[in-house]
């Protein structure tokens, strides 16, 4: 059993969670944890339940059984907006931006404390405007950081696929969340963009962020991750360093099995 102290060091703790959709056992007893400052990869064949695990953690899917802790606090089946506001930001496997809003707006809406209440429109207008100015500046800085500053006024839907992926990641940074979750951040992008995204993740780690990501690109996983969690049929079949995972028999079987069927 973990002591109280080490529990706090664990940013995320997923304890024996289950989610069945009718007969489909999408998540079936998965258990793993993420320590502060760590980059953890969640891998596994198609349909292993990786995205479902993401949705369970972030509150978009209610789990049947098990517990999820974030920074020591029980967040099991809490509402997504509640969990997000505790300092957890994520991207989606299928990109979810605000298509008919500008890149800059997409960034600003991700930021905290933006005086978004209705009462602020009328009762703290001055402070609200000041905050807006600050947020604009910070958003521009971040867009420069990821290399999208030229697209500031463009509608998100007019960006290329790779740029949209980048913007989605940039938005999670804009939230100031300490824990970031990316569902296939490098899927479908070209080599240049892939390098850009891995560089970005490394910089985020240097800044002390904790990251959990799903990715099929093994080179990317082996390069980026401190720890790898392998999921198969909704259960973790191996946890270890990239090196340990590479030689793991169960993992090789799971992937080859996946190829056969």
């Amino acid at each position: 059993m973990l002591s109280r102290k080490s529990e706090v060091l664990q940013v995320l703790r997923v304890v024996d969670i289950y989610k069945h959709f009718g007969g489909i056992k999408a998540v079936n007893g998965a258990e793993f944890s993420v320590k502060k400052g760590e980059i953890v990869a969640l891998i596994g064949p198609n349909g292993a339940g990786k995205t479902t695990v993401f949705n369970c953690i972030t509150g978009f899917i209610q789990i049947d059984k098990g517990r999820i802790f974030f920074e020591g606090e029980d967040i099991t089946n809490k509402r997504p907006e509640k969990i997000a506001s505790m300092g957890l930001a994520r991207t989606f496997q299928i990109i979810r931006l605000f298509p008919k809003m500008t890149v800059l707006e997409n960034m600003m809406i991700a930021m905290r404390d933006q005086y978004e209440g209705l009462h602020h429109v009328f009762f703290s207008r001055k402070k609200m405007m000041e905050k807006q100015k600050e947020a604009e500046e910070k958003a521009i800085e971040l867009l420069e950081f990821v290399g999208l500053e030229a697209k500031e006024d463009e509608l998100a839907m007019n960006l290329s696929y790779g740029q949209q992926k980048l913007l989605e990641i940039a938005k999670t940074i804009a939230t100031d969340a300490e824990f970031l979750m990316f569902d296939e951040p490098a899927a479908g992008v070209n080599l240049t963009m892939l390098k850009k995204i891995s560089g970005l993740l490394k910089k985020l780690k240097e800044q002390g962020k904790t990251i959990l990501f799903v990715e099929h690109n093994m080179e990317f996983v082996m390069n980026m991750a401190d720890k790898v969690v392998v999921l198969d049929h909704g259960d973790e079949i191996a946890i270890g360093t990239p090196k340990q995972i590479k030689g793991n028999k169960k993992v090789i079987d799971a992937y080859l099995g996946g190829v056969q069927c």
């Binding site: 972030t58 997504p80 930001a89 605000f98 298509p99 008919k100 978004e116």
Partner: peptide
Amino acid sequence: EDEIASQSLGK
């Protein structure tokens, strides 16, 4: 634009 994305940003 996208309720789920909005929720995921804590709205």
